[in-house]
């Protein structure tokens, strides 16, 4: 359960204050599949970063499972990101020096799982995303679709209840994009909460509900 209450975010560009969110409130119950739509600059990524605990709002509160994240320190916030949230980025954002298996293991390393457990779970996850045979490849040796599937496996590593996707298909061809979305939806059917930022109306249409943003506010 994610709840945002009157979120505001103001970026300072030198002397000028640029409001990115102007008071956004929303509830996302467990197991929901939400698309956040809007043109670039509408604040949809900013909203995702706030409720995904990657950034702190200027004012307002984000509750994750009834915990007020504005009261948490950096370490506690990191724990939330590690255990409750899986993040998928448009640019995949894998660590280039690590192979697929190690990339998937990384969140478990920060979690403190044993090496044996990590390797086993990472192999399992790579099998689930269909990349068991690519475990030892570095990101540069994988296609875009493959990299994104590694990123999904990584997001699932600590078995978080919520997956955030910031334009997860934005850098993929249509075919790979469809594969990724199918896979994410399968996760949602198993009970995973799915929150996707997109400006692709086709993807937005597949979600249970769609939130539209414009100039830092929600459009009903």
């Amino acid at each position: 359960m994610i709840r945002a209450v009157n979120l505001k975010k103001i970026y300072k560009m030198g002397e000028i204050e640029v409001p990115a969110l102007r008071g956004v409130s929303l509830d996302i119950p467990d197991g929901d599949y939400v698309a956040i739509e809007g043109p670039s600059g509408s604040g949809k990524s900013t909203l995702l970063n706030m409720i995904g605990c990657l950034d702190r709002p200027t004012s307002g509160n984000v509750f994750i499972d009834d915990v007020d994240t504005s009261k948490l320190n950096d370490t506690e916030l990191a724990k939330i990101r590690r255990e409750k949230i899986g993040f998928i980025f448009q640019m995949f954002n894998l660590i280039p020096t690590l192979n697929a298996l190690e990339n998937v293991s990384l969140p478990m390393m920060f979690y403190g799982s044993s090496r044996g457990k990590r390797a086993k779970r990472a192999e399992e996850l790579l099998k689930i995303v269909g990349l068991a045979d690519r475990a030892n490849h570095k990101p540069s040796e994988l296609s875009g679709g493959e990299q994104q599937r590694v990123a999904i496996a990584r997001a699932l590593a600590n078995d978080p209840p919520v997956i955030f996707g910031d334009e997860p298909t934005g850098n993929l061809d249509t075919e790979s994009g469809k594969g990724i979305m199918n896979f994410l939806e399968k996760l949602n059917k198993k009970g995973e909460t799915l929150i996707i930022v997109t400006h692709d109306p086709e993807i937005a249409a597949r979600a249970h509900r769609s939130i539209r943003m414009r100039d830092g506010t929600l459009k009903a």
């Binding site: 990191a78 954002n93 969140p107």
Partner: peptide, 16 residues
Amino acid sequence: THEIGIMKAIGATNSN
């Protein structure tokens, strides 16, 4: 910087 950001996004603490 980018890598550090990724690590923090997937749950690394400052002390990590």
